[in-house]
Design a protein around this nucleic acid. Sequence first.
DNA 1: CTATAAATGAGGAACGTACCTCTTGTCTAC
DNA 2: GTAGACAAGAGGTACGTTCCTCATTTATAG
Lengths: 341, 341
Amino acid sequence: MNKPTVHDIAKEAGVSLATVDRVLNARPGVREKTIAKVQGAVERLGYVRDTYAANLARQRLYHFTFVLPEGPSQFTDTLKAALKEATSSQIADRIVLKVVTVPLHDPHAIVRTLRSLNAARLDGVAIMVPETPQVRDAVARLKDAGVKVVALVSDLPNSARDYFIGINSIAAGRTAGLLMGRLIPREGEVLVVTNSMRSRDSLDRRLGFDQVISNDFPRLKALPSIESYDDAERMEKITREVIMSRPDIVGVYSMGAGNMPLLSALRKSERLAELVVISHELTPATRQALMDNEIAAVIAQNVGHLVRSAMRILRTLSDDLPIFEAQERIRIDIIVRENLP
Amino acid sequence: MNKPTVHDIAKEAGVSLATVDRVLNARPGVREKTIAKVQGAVERLGYVRDTYAANLARQRLYHFTFVLPEGPSQFTDTLKAALKEATSSQIADRIVLKVVTVPLHDPHAIVRTLRSLNAARLDGVAIMVPETPQVRDAVARLKDAGVKVVALVSDLPNSARDYFIGINSIAAGRTAGLLMGRLIPREGEVLVVTNSMRSRDSLDRRLGFDQVISNDFPRLKALPSIESYDDAERMEKITREVIMSRPDIVGVYSMGAGNMPLLSALRKSERLAELVVISHELTPATRQALMDNEIAAVIAQNVGHLVRSAMRILRTLSDDLPIFEAQERIRIDIIVRENLP
DNA sequence: CTATAAATGAGGAACGTACCTCTTGTCTAC
DNA sequence: GTAGACAAGAGGTACGTTCCTCATTTATAG
């Protein structure tokens, strides 16, 4: 009735413990026929390796590296904080964690960093950078070297990454669109702002947003995206100008980072109270704006879950174990003033 | 640099391994002074017991029992499904799980069941029942017998339970109130329905809902709660009558289970399209209603997270380890058509 | 100061797995 | 028929912890 051990497998298969070990750990020097015998026993008894005992025996350490954007961003700051917090918990057990940051605007530097990772002493990498052909190459190279790769927050769909941990941007955009439509009962224009439409996330969010607006809420007109290019002043200036010149604007959808200059511009315009503002990611700025009723809703992903999931998945991949999908699915959180975590 | 082991503690404290073991496992026969020496070494080296190695050595099994409501309820069905799913994952490692169901309407049967639990061979219990003085007593009795007790979904705030796993009902009600107010731009009445206002959860949700409605949306008038007493026919009949007789109703807040008869009544009234309906818990019925635009939003708690959290917390409590709060906090999920999980 | 109890030390086996060495068995080729 | 290669067995040690026994030291009481 108890969980079968390697000894049970040996008995069941009629071979020695050493042979079972050779088969289970894919060591050479075992005939096909014998391998089949052992695997048969494994399946018949429903053997699952006790990972903890195995890790104890082999003194296993998991070497993981997180590649995150550098520079000031409230979102990546909260992500890093969550990572640090997780490090001191049970989840980080046997994990040796390294965090490196890369400048997002410099594709060469990103690739240089990815290439500089020592694949030989690395079990897994979690990457949060925009997808480029060079990044795809670097991912393939890591994979070839036996390193597990997961994309974090921003997917690398055309790369060889093993897993994506984050929310579907199209669905996130659709959620924003639905909320915007439901929260604005009249006609009008919706301002859409982002850092840069060259990022895939922004494109997808915009896509999802437009799908729902045009299909379910034709009374609303989503304006062309305004891009800030990470320039706070530019963002504030342009936003103010557009808001001033277009009295029909009834809502604002902020797809990316940079909510602080946006809010600052909206405040100065003195039209904030009558606008429905929806933004992404829960940061100190958006949290405060929610509490002040300046932002109606925030579309977010739980960063704590994000980093814990990344660690668990990298570990699971490293052990060639099946992933428990239900636990790892990152949900699209809708946060309003009253359900702030 | 490596994690210290019991051997390191023995060396540091200048005692033998056996003594370290006696101290760490609170076995008798050690002088106060020696205990202090060992504990000093533990703190200086920052020793943390390797729980996996310990469990391996002592062949530890965690015996947990979940006490859940019996009878047909889509919510408890999904909860049980999540429990079953979790059982076959890593999380349930070394856990021997038992599920017993109790009739919620029969306080005596509940207490009888709680008393019948064999505290001697039980490490922890997760309980989902309404709080009564008898339940409080039963919890205290379990605690006295050394069993860890957590309240699930529905808190037992005045009992000796170690932990509550679920969402704050007042905050959930406030969230519903805020959404209702934001989604209804005009004046009108809001119908509030529930199973029974004798349940603490319903009272608290109502309380939170009324707080926000009266404070932020005085244009809305929340009607007195309609109770179904778990009687589907009654629910459907009364709802239909009220809806028919009160043309000013613009929204419906469903605080408890029994969304199927409610929806059925609303459909028959043919006013569903113009009503803003907000309900609790994601079940097959509410999921379908969300997709059909019949329900505007569902306030939910992630049942998968709920049961995984319960298992982790019971295990952590059994090991007298600190709980990683950030991971265990159950969030108030707002679910709309586009962010359905 | 001794008898006794209490506290501590020393060592080993076990948990399930990994990994090592050494030996024995079996097959193939010439 | 035997060398050589390959396959399999047998047995041990280790990981960090628990738990056991037995011996030894130390404190306490009479």
